[in-house]
């Protein structure tokens, strides 16, 4: 990772803080260490042992959990002898009628489509990295996309929403959590873990080093 680039220009020995533009010496950061900007304290690089492998394992786990979360019911509502199960798909379709129809697509995107796209993008980019192969075609483009999607993948926000909804209907009927809810909780934990292992600058440097080698 710290091998000097073939272009023996001074530019390659510097790094600009992505947050505040401070010009810093690009020292090689050892695994387990954290390099942060002396001016704004933003973490610039934080390589972790086996980070790539761990990220792809977690992204795979997240994908499987998402499949479970979509198809199993996550809430069960019982009232007057009737039981109604609600799955993620039902929730997405809740806005499908009337004036709120456009929200349906947005909901599907925020809860399922964007998180899944992110997992797939990360697998595509980091998979070859974890095995020490050359980057896949368009890996840079795909990783940029994955980073851009990050704020819009709202799985964990949805989980808190489920908890709030649960309390709201608790007076109306008997409510219990379905298997998909727990799958979703696990998914959120996995996503948070995965994002903790991820150091954007480190991934970019690795991609660059593998591309030129």
């Amino acid at each position: 990772m710290s091998t000097p680039a073939p272009l023996s220009c001074d530019l390659d020995r510097m790094i600009a803080c992505p947050a505040c533009d401070a010009l810093l010496a690009d020292i090689s950061v050892e695994t387990g260490e954290t390099a942060s900007c002396p001016r704004c304290h933003t973490v610039i690089e934080a390589p972790r042992p086996l980070a790539m492998t761990r990220i792809i394992m977690l992204a795979l786990a997240a994908l499987i959990l998402m499949i479970a979360a979509v198809f199993f019911p996550f809430l069960e509502l019982g009232a007057a002898g009737m039981v109604r199960r609600s799955s993620l798909l039902d929730t997405v379709m809740a806005f499908a009628t009337g004036l709120t129809a456009p929200l349906t697509i947005a909901m599907a995107a925020l809860i399922v489509i964007l998180p899944v796209s992110r997992f797939l993008a990360l697998l595509y980019v980091l998979g070859p990295m974890a095995f020490g192969w050359h980057p896949a075609r368009h890996a840079a483009k795909v990783f940029r996309l994955a980073e851009a999607l990050r704020p819009w993948a709202m799985a964990e926000v949805f989980i808190v929403g489920v908890a709030v909804a649960l309390v709201k209907v608790a007076g109306l009927a008997h409510v219990s959590l379905g298997p998909a809810f727990w799958a979703f909780v696990a998914l959120v934990v996995v996503t948070v873990l995965k994002d903790n292992f991820m150091s954007r600058v480190t991934v970019w440097k690795t991609l660059e080093a593998r591309r030129t080698s």
Partner: peptide, 30 residues
């Protein structure tokens, strides 16, 4: 920023859960 989306999700969950087959129906508003 993203955490403000909670209430929209709550409305969607409630609407999908509480439907015609119960005494009450919940529909999302504009």
């Amino acid at each position: 920023g993203r955490w403000s989306m909670i209430d929209v999700f709550v409305v969607a969950i409630l609407s999908s859960l509480v439907r015609l087959d119960f005494a009450a129906t919940i529909t999302p508003g504009i």
